[in-house]
Design a protein around this nucleic acid. Sequence first.
DNA 1: GTGGAGGTACGCGAGCGACT
DNA 2: AGTCGCTCGCGTACCTCCAC
Length: 364
Amino acid sequence: MSDTSESWRPGSFTKNFSWGKKENGLLKLHQAIRVGFDGVTEDVERETFRNRVKKEGLLDYIPVNFFLFNSSKGGANFIIADELVFQAINWNHSDSFDKLAIFAFNFSRVGKWRGAGPEQRYPALWARHYIKDRVANQFGWDTKKISANDIEAFVKNDPRYKAKTARKLSTNLYYLYSVSHLSDFSTNRVERWWVDCLFLALDRLIEDQKLDGIDIDGARYASILANSNFGDLSGQRSVEKDLAEKHLIALYDACGSRERFSEEHVRERTAVKIEDVEWVLANDVRPQGAVHPTNPRVLKSIPRACAMLAKYAGFEIIEADELEQFDPDKFAVERTRRILAELREQNIVPNMSAEELLKLTREK
DNA sequence: GTGGAGGTACGCGAGCGACT
DNA sequence: AGTCGCTCGCGTACCTCCAC
């Protein structure tokens, strides 16, 4: 994807979406994914996905050509099960889903399928660059500066934009940004949707390379993520996010990257990584949360089977019920209390004064 | 001005026959 | 057997028009 050879094409983005009421956000995309995958987080044939979705009178092109990832196996075209699909299937529609989805759109890597032109693999480069070059780098994520006119001026003035018209594309994109809460990307805190974006970006980057016959191993996850402009595309950058990134990459790798959705793979992986593990079949099939002890905002929803692997990677597990109304501050307080109680139980008492301790920490 | 419906032109690739 | 070139159909890209 070098800059000089890039060609920005609108594709069917100048077509109308019928997203419905503005307050519903990207609900129709959420519905299309659930219907297209028939509620199962497993790769599905593109043809099957489209037929299911069309039968329900839902959108088809826009989801498959802009939001999801296409790959082929044995000559057939598939839509792969990735983080966006996992979130759509396991949680009801929410603002968080919309933010993850709009990130996927801006990330603009949707793979290949039979009959697709080469530029369709990166279908929304105009959006990707608008976010990275204009919104992140020029506006510093002051999203109030985004408007249809600004988008139009941006694409029209770029020689890489190759289409006869720009108005419809600009109004469509502006509409999409306003309904999907892009304005929340200005936060410098780590939030649930951002954590999901990171997993999604890795899913897509790895699959994109796989299309060219390149396998990416865990040691390269950090560098491919950095080269993909994930930082700029996922919102305001911050130290908290940079620190979280390291832990999340480790978690992603530990859970087996995209294999995390296959219980069979996770089971084998767990047996290899952890000795004497006892596999307990749970009645509850809902995903769980993995929290990093250094920052309870680093909370990732993971398939239930991955719990052991997440623990192995240094995360703590929280139950599906807790996940819904998880409060990071409360978690931090309770965790400290628990650790102190454990220390007390083991008769471990401080042998220095508070003043001495403070002096020690200041010198570090 | 903007979202939505419908329409059409066009390009790509599958399929097939002709020729080497 | 391999490859070249042509046709055809489908999917896609983009347009116009309409309602509000």
